[in-house]
Amino acid sequence: KRPMNAFMVWAKDERRKILQAFPDMHNSNISKILGSRWKSMSNQEKQPYYEEQARLSKIHLEKYPNYK
């Protein structure tokens, strides 16, 4: 399994927050909201998630050096 990208790292927690506020919301609607919110974020706001992506990718590479 591939490591999560920056959007997926961010969306994991955000999806949970949306589901708590709107438990009956369909997954497709949540995904649209998440995509819209991510697009509206500045690069500075996204930076911690890109850093986490890099950390996860490094761990993945160490654990699975032959993964293609």
Rank of each mutant, 00 (worst) to 15 (best):
V9D: 07
Q44D: 14
Q44A: 14
K46F: 01
S57K: 06
M8E: 15
M41Q: 02
P3G: 07
M4V: 10
A11T: 00
K39P: 09
H26R: 12
D24W: 05
P65D: 15
A11C: 08
F7R: 02
S31Y: 11
E52P: 01
E52M: 08
Q44N: 08
A54T: 09
L34M: 02
K32I: 06
L56Q: 10
L61V: 11
M4S: 11
S28R: 09
Y67I: 12
K32L: 06
K63R: 09
I30N: 01
K46D: 02
E14I: 15
S31E: 15
K63V: 07
N5K: 02
K12Y: 05
M4L: 06
S31K: 15
E45D: 11
W10Q: 02
L19N: 07
P65L: 09
L56G: 08
A6R: 06
I33L: 12
L34Q: 00
M41T: 01
V9H: 02
F7L: 02
L19H: 10
S36V: 11
K39H: 03
L34E: 00
V9S: 07
F22I: 06
E62Y: 05
A54E: 12
P48F: 08
N66I: 07
L19D: 04
A6P: 05
E52H: 03
M8P: 02
A6K: 03
L34H: 01
H26C: 14
E52N: 02
W10F: 10
N43L: 11
N66P: 11
K12F: 03
R2W: 04
N43T: 14
Y67T: 15
K12G: 08
P23S: 03
F7D: 00
Y49S: 03
P3R: 12
S57Q: 08
N27P: 15
P65R: 09
N5V: 03
W10L: 00
A21Y: 07
S42L: 02
P23V: 02
P3D: 15
P48I: 09
R15L: 14
P23M: 01
D24Y: 08
K39G: 05
I18A: 00
K17F: 01
E45I: 02
A21S: 09
M41K: 06
W38Y: 00
K17L: 03
L19A: 12
L34I: 04
I30V: 12
F22N: 15
N43F: 06
L61K: 13
Q44M: 13
M8V: 06
E45R: 01
Y50E: 07
F22P: 05
A11Y: 02
Q44W: 04
K1V: 08
I59R: 10
D13F: 01
K1T: 11
N43S: 12
K58G: 11
R16V: 14
N5M: 00
E45N: 01
E14K: 11
L34C: 01
M25C: 04
H26M: 13
E52A: 08
L56Y: 04
M8D: 15
N5R: 02
E62D: 11
V9M: 07
A54V: 08
F7Q: 00
N66F: 07
E52S: 04
S57R: 11
S42M: 04
L19W: 01
D13H: 01
K46R: 06
K1A: 12
Q20T: 11
E51Q: 09
E14Q: 07
K63Q: 14
F7V: 01
M25Y: 01
P65W: 04
Q53L: 11
L56P: 10
A11F: 05
M25I: 07
S31C: 10
N43I: 09
